[in-house]
Structure formats: structure tokens, C-alpha cells
Design a binder for these strands. Structure first.
Lengths: 350, 350
DNA sequence: TTCCTGGTTTACATCGATGTAAATCGATGC
DNA sequence: GCATCGATTTACATCGATGTAAACCAGGAA
């Protein structure tokens, strides 16, 4: 049992032996315990280097009870918004000494299984959960007694912390921007077929609210649903809008992917943006800035969301207080004006 | 010590006690050991449910010596190619019972530190490493005696498995496609300022090779470098090309982000795609399909790369054989023809 | 010289699970 | 009735680290 085949199962035991000290002293050196003599510290350091010793994290995790790993559950990484969000979260978490384990909830395999359970199995310290839209089982998940931050809409009565976005206000501002440049027949893409839940519902409220305030009647022919908020859904909805002969000169999309899909479809059908149709999106993903024309959008301040989410979670983990009341932070938004709603000037100017 | 504050540190011990069996029996039930009587199994199952017991993964990891977590080190998730790759890898890994821990190597924080060391600290079973371009320290990393699959270019003499792409051949095909539609002044964006290393070098070879075969002289004014292969770099290079007064009617970009940035810049400067300049990219990210005009590109078969990488790694972990020789798989490519190189017809047709 | 003090170092128990090998048990075969 | 066999179940050691508390040790005060 002593002779190993190929791997290097060097333990603190081995290091201690080589350095001629106790295991605990090795541990002390490695964890920067202050009261270690310079001589000892050096002997241990050398022994560590010589043996190529690496700490066994599983052992430490077991002993300490923490893993310094955060889980991140998002619908799918291939959507730019989530990729950029994950990027931001990984960076923030890294800055605080945490690594991130990602689980995609939109995967067919994960579909039926409780994500939280899966993630827990990997002994994460806490979870950041960004549900696409809240389903019954999501709500159940949120009730779990587990350090968790939920992104998106708030679920009342849950024990989790929440970081929400000003969905309604932001889409309202976007809609008002279109009204402000003189558009009156404003279509909207992204309503949820399954009804008034989650981000889709709040965003729709923003749209209708803006129109009502402006004294414009809601035309249901202008309200289009989209199942997944992917580019292809934007194309589909826009083509239906065109095929139906619906007249529109403005388009509010509930995310940038839909908007980019919509722009693609519009241009394929010979409509000029923004002259024939002015388009606004939501999310401020990088693609939008480089699309032709560049896309006006609402930035939900992704970095601020990431920072807040990680902050809330890490705070909660650090505190000895297990039972702090759930906290809720709402992040603001910023309008990002670009060519897809530019007035007067040609799309080439900036 | 027995009364806990808020958490639930239910252990197998507790379950065993409640079910009136030994700890090992509980373990047996949970790990589906076949020789357990139905009665016992049920008693244990009930006790587990009643106490809300969850396995302590750290403990199991320590005992077993494996964590079922794979590390994935990529430059940055916010780049669509890597996001889509990560998506694919997470799915494949999930299908084989592994979760994925992501580390971004392009982060300023990680910059100086050895990624492999960081990741190891998190007790992953293996690592999939996708370096942006090979640096000296990268090569050192590859020498680590640790189950690892490297994506991209091959490093000779490394102990790691490699999954490479047909970089040169693919870009050659892309260039030949432009030649095929009659372009003769073909610019290229993506050469590396730091010299002939990695993917950039192979891809440049493909470009020059195609031109040479076609009997066209290489004009160095047409070869533009880009540091990061982001959209902004594509914009910059293109604008320099235009500002310099360089004449060109075709453009090969070493990835789609560069190409999308280039298209943006071209259109801003009033050039029509593909009539004035035909553009091809590389990666087949989703954005390309929805850009205006849609982008012709080379698909490096991301899913196949992901499947192969995960497969190689998992195989290696499963095998008892510690010292299999490093394996190398080269994945093919597929040309994806779209409007940015369409001939004759207007960009609106398909 | 003896006691005290505070910095160093160490022995030992422990985190929560699983592998090993042996004990237990009921039924079968002679 | 007793040995045997396979299915169940269990006691115990063990994975590799860290917390606790006690031992050790050198220098200064008494």
C-alpha cells in the first residue's frame, strides 16, 4: 500500500517527516500561522517544494466545513447575457477568494431534477440562481434552507436574498424613448405565452404603462410572445408581425437577442432601421454595440448585479449570524442610445 | 457541541440511529449496494427523508479520492466562442456525471498565477485548458503531471492530451472561397503581434498558402494584427486598413468577433458587404448567423470538440492505466456559407 | 537557582463518509 | 441435527487535514 503506481499522493505527513517536524507545524506554516520560527518555516517550505506537495482540498473542506466554491445556476451559457453575467460573477467571486461551479438549468437533462439538489451535492457554500422565469418548482427550490441569492424577480416569502432589476421602469423608459422620437405604432416582442410571470410580465407592464401615460391605446396585434428569447425567436416574431400586415414603426424587445433577431428579419424584408422601424433592446450585450445599425438598449448594469449578488452571498457566508432576514437589492438601469433609434442622421454617423 | 444553532449537520450517524441500523448500512443503501433487504432499505430511506439528510460530499471526496468535478480554464466567458464552448462542455460533462468549475485565464488577477495550481487547489479530477496562445508559462503548465486536455494547438512533449483544430486547412478553405468568388485583394485580420505562435500562426499559414497556390503575391499591407480578437479589435484593424487607403475586396478574419467588428466598421464607412468587400470569419458563433448581412464562417465543430475533450479526459480518469501515452485528436471543419460572401444576389435573399 | 511568561511545537481527537473483512443469520443439504 | 453457503449487516480502520489544549523551551524577574 505504500508504493504508489504513478500519482503523487504526498501528504502533510510526508512533508512533516522530511522536514523533521510535526504535521500540525506543516499545517501552521501553510496557513501562515504567525508563531512559527523562521528556521522551521524555511525547513517546511523546502520540504514542500522538494516533494511537490499540494494540499488536499477535500480533506480541508471536510475539516473546515466550507469549500470556497459558489454555485451559479443559469439557463444557458450560450446566451450572451448569461455568459457576460457569468464572466462578471466569476471575476467578483474570484476577487473574494471563491471559485464558481456552473450549472445550466435549461439543459434537457437537468430539466426535471432539482437544480439546488444537484448543486448541493457538489458541496458548494452558496448558490446564485438566475431562473429564466419562475415556475412552481423554482419557488419550492427557493424555500430551501441554503445560502442563496436569486437574480431577477423577487419571490415573496422565500428565505433567499434577492437582486432584482427595475424591469418595468427600464422597459417603460425604453418605450418612452421611442415615443419621444415620434413613434406611435410600437410593437413589443417577448411576452410570455405562459402568462403573467417573471421578468416578461414586469417588462410588459412597463410597455403598457408608457403607452397608457402617453394616451395611446394598446393594440394587442402589436404584442408578440416569444418562448425562449433567443435570436431565432426574435426573427420568428418579427416575420409574423410582417406577415400579418401589422403596421409598426417602433419595436421594443425584451432582450437584445430578440432585438438582434428582429433587426435581422426587418432588414431581410427591406425595412430600414431606424427610419422605417426604430428598435430598442434590453441587456446591453456586447453584440448590440457592433450590430448594423448599432442597437439602442437598456443596460441592467450587469457588473453591479454581479457585485451585489456575490457580495450578498459572501456576506451571508461570512457572518456568524445564520438567520439574517432575507435582503433585497434593486439595481437601476441605464439607457444606452445608439443608431437603431437615432433621429435625423444616417446610421453611419456617430 | 450537540446543539447546533441554525444549520442542519445531519450525518449518516444520525440517520443510522433513527433507522436502527449501522452507519455502513446507510451508506450501502445510499450507494445502491445490491445486497440490502427491502425492509432495511425502506427504513433507511424513511429516516433520510425525515431528517432531510444530505450527503457530505467533502467527506466522500476525501474517502474516495475523486470529486467528479472537471476544471475548465478559458480566456474569458464573455467571448461568444468560449461561452458556447463552455456550454457544450458543461453539457457533455454533465452527461457523464461531471460538473464543471470555470476559471478565466484572461483575468488580471489570474494573470501571473499558474492556472493549473489554482484549479488544483479546488480538487478537480481533471482539467480542460484552452489557452489563447501558448506562452512560456503555459508550456510549463502543460508539463504538470495532472489529467489534462489541451484545446487548440499542440504542444509537443507535453503529457497532456490534445484536441486540435485544422486551423491552417480551415483558413485556407476560407481564403480559397473568397478567391473562388473572384476576390483578389484579400486582407486578413488576426495575425499576432507577438509572432508566429499558436492558432494565429497556423491560420496565417492557411491564408498565405491559399494565395501562393493561386499565384497571388502576398502584400504585407493586407495583413493586420489584432491583440485580443475581440469585436473592437476587428473595428480597429478595419479602420486602419481603410485609413491607410489599402485597396481590398475580400477579408479573412481569424474569428467571428473580429469579422463582426470588421463588418460594423465597413458598413459605417459606407462599404457594402459582400459587393465591395466579402467577409469570412471563423468559429461559427451564433451572432454571425443573425448579423446583417449574415456572416460566412468556418465552423470548427464546437460540439465535436467538446465531446472529444470531455471524452478523452473522462476516459483517462476512468482507466486504471495512469500512464497512457498522450493522445491527440484533430477535429475537422465545415464551411458555412452565408450572405457576407454571397455572389450575384442581393443580401436580402436566401 | 527557581518561577513565570510568552512564543513554539506537538499529541490527539475529529470532520463524515467508505473499504475491508469478519460476524450474523436463515435456509439448504446430508 | 449439524455443517455449509450465500445474503445481510456490522465493527473498525482510514482518507488528509485542522482545532484544542497541553507540553516544551528560552529568557527575564525574583
Amino acid at each position: 500500500m505504500k508504493a504508489r503506481n504513478g500519482r503523487t499522493p504526498v501528504t502533510m505527513q510526508d512533508v512533516a517527516q522530511l522536514a523533521g517536524v510535526s504535521v500540525k507545524t506543516v499545517s501552521n506554516v501553510l496557513s501562515d500561522y504567525p508563531h512559527v520560527s523562521a528556521t522551521t518555516r524555511e525547513r517546511v517550505t523546502i520540504a514542500v517544494a522538494e516533494l511537490g506537495y499540494t494540499l488536499n482540498v477535500s480533506a480541508r473542506n471536510l475539516r473546515i466545513g466550507r469549500t470556497r466554491v459558489l454555485g451559479l445556476a443559469i439557463p444557458e451559457l450560450s446566451q450572451a447575457y448569461f455568459a457576460e453575467l457569468a464572466d462578471a460573477i466569476i471575476r467578483r467571486a474570484g476577487a473574494r477568494g471563491y471559485t464558481v461551479l456552473i450549472e445550466q438549468t435549461l439543459s434537457p437533462a437537468t430539466d426535471e431534477i432539482d437544480t439546488v439538489e444537484i448543486m448541493r451535492r457538489h458541496s458548494i457554500d452558496g448558490l446564485i440562481y438566475s431562473p429564466l422565469s419562475m415556475t412552481a418548482s423554482d419557488v419550492r427550490r427557493l424555500d430551501a434552507e441554503f445560502p442563496m441569492v436569486v437574480l431577477g424577480d423577487r419571490v415573496r416569502g422565500s428565505r433567499a436574498d434577492h437582486v432584482t432589476m427595475a424591469n418595468a421602469a427600464a422597459i417603460r423608459a425604453a418605450t418612452e424613448h421611442l415615443l419621444g422620437i415620434g413613434r406611435r405604432r410600437i410593437a413589443v416582442i417577448g411576452a410570455r405565452p405562459e402568462g403573467p410571470v417573471g421578468a416578461g410580465a414586469s417588462r410588459l407592464q412597463g410597455y403598457t404603462g408608457a403607452l397608457e401615460t402617453a394616451g395611446i391605446d394598446i393594440d394587442t396585434a402589436l404584442i408578440r410572445s416569444a418562448a425562449l428569447w433567443h435570436r431565432a425567436d426574435g426573427v420568428r416574431a418579427t416575420e409574423e408581425l410582417i406577415a400579418d400586415g401589422t403596421d409598426f414603426d417602433g419595436l421594443v424587445c425584451f432582450n437584445d437577442a430578440l432585438a438582434l433577431g428582429a433587426m435581422h428579419a426587418l432588414q431581410r424584408h427591406g425595412r430600414t432601421i431606424p427610419d422605417d422601424v426604430a428598435v430598442v433592446g434590453f441587456d446591453d450585450i456586447e453584440d448590440g454595440a457592433f450590430a448594423t445599425p448599432s442597437l439602442t438598449t437598456v443596460s441592467p448594469r450587469r457588473d453591479e448585479v454581479a457585485e451585489t449578488a456575490v457580495g450578498l452571498l459572501v456576506d451571508r457566508l461570512a457572518e456568524g449570524s445564520d438567520r439574517t432576514a432575507p435582503r433585497h437589492v434593486e439595481i437601476g438601469y441605464t439607457m444606452v442610445l445608439r443608431d437603431s433609434t437615432a433621429t435625423g442622421t444616417a446610421p453611419g454617423s456617430e
